[in-house]
Amino acid sequence: MNVKALLFGLLFLLPAPMWAQGYAGLGGSADGFDIPKQGYQFQFPRDHGPHPSFRIEWWYLTANLIGEDGRDYGVQWTLFRSALKPTQTDGWQSPQLWMGHAAVTTPDAHYLAERLSRGGIGQAGVTAAPYEAWIDEWHMRGPDPDTLTLTASGEEFHYDLSLTALGPLVFHGDAGYSVKSADGQASHYYSQPFYDVEGVLYLPDGDVAVTGQGWLDREWSSQPLAEDQSGWDWFSLSFDDGDKLMAFRLRGGRGDFTAATWISADGTATPLPDGSASFIPLETARVEGRDVPVTWQVTLPDYDLDVEVTALTPKAWMATRFEYWEGPVKVSGNRSGRGYLEMTGY
């Protein structure tokens, strides 16, 4: 959400006639599935693992990296879980479906790959302790989410990264209950935005050692959008002074719904309600036949924030089963930094 970012797992379940509805399909009925509840008490390591009684869920990691060549890079590793039914069984009868997305973005290129799997056969899944999320040979694993190794590959790229958390988990909204619309749709949503990252990217132009910062989003729900909401713009920004911001705008026929979390350098999280942040597209680019905003003005008056958020490259289009834009950004203005931007419904 991401939001992240993020609700593609549900779309994987939709019959073909509904695909034309795009992300609006995420506002469909959730009959039979659990619904997020305010006051939910997170328990770890349990909640690092899957929640099969909810319809959709994701493990979503992005990283802003700098290579030994001095260039900026971005990495995405995502595992989505979707459920046909709110149950978990072994074998091909399992109603749990899995989808993986991986990408590397450079200043002039965007490499991506996608994997699909049925649950219950061992090809994909998540365990909470020891911590491991995988699909095929792609893995995010460690003794716990504080210390991870990350690997994925596509036809034109491969990466091996190590991640170490240097701060606490952050819970969005009301202690992890993140509202997504005026009608009350919501998710359970927490992040680990304090990863220190190092490793190697294997690219067509050669191998490059990288270091940087990573951000993991964990979110699950069953009906995260209202019926009129068709897409979103989600920002995860890390400022040079150590503060961070998660903010999103959900676009709907009745107007936008926004939310944000200000994360101080020490990990203190302050949730900000609808209307606290504003997002103004300043420049668009023609990307895969679509006009996509690639420069934004983001303001947050409560924290005297007024910044421009600019894509490292407009080419960061995820031409996967359900298409979206996802890529690294640079931040300038009265704060400087780096981050990630996700945009759907364009």
Rank of each mutant, 00 (worst) to 15 (best):
Y131D: 00
E308N: 02
W138Y: 00
E114P: 15
K85M: 11
D31G: 02
I121M: 10
L14H: 05
V170M: 14
S178C: 04
Y159E: 12
L169R: 15
H110A: 12
Q88W: 14
F239A: 04
P328K: 03
W296F: 00
P193L: 06
S162P: 07
P145N: 11
V208F: 06
G27A: 04
F171H: 14
G231Y: 03
L97W: 13
S162N: 15
G275V: 15
T149V: 15
W138Q: 09
F248H: 04
E57T: 00
P143F: 05
Y303W: 02
F322H: 08
F8A: 04
D266M: 01
W19Q: 05
K180Y: 12
D72M: 11
I121H: 10
E198I: 02
A102Y: 02
D233C: 06
F8P: 07
Y23Q: 06
P273K: 13
A152N: 08
D160T: 09
L7H: 09
Q21C: 02
W19K: 13
G206V: 07
D90G: 12
R338S: 15
D72T: 12
H110N: 13
E57L: 01
V197E: 08
W296I: 00
L272A: 06
F33Q: 02
L14I: 07
T320E: 04
A30Q: 01
F8S: 13
T147D: 14
Q43A: 14
G70V: 09
D228E: 09
E68F: 10
R115H: 15
T149F: 10
W317A: 00
G67Y: 10
D160P: 00
L300G: 03
A269H: 07
A24N: 01
S181M: 09
L112C: 05
G74S: 13
E198S: 13
L10M: 11
V200N: 03
G214S: 08
Y40R: 14
H110Y: 15
L282V: 04
F248W: 02
D31H: 03
T127P: 07
G345Q: 01
P45T: 09
D144T: 12
F171C: 12
P328S: 11
L300A: 01
P86I: 11
Y111G: 12
V197F: 00
F257L: 01
G91N: 11
L245H: 07
G212E: 05
H172G: 12
P86C: 14
G184H: 07
I135W: 08
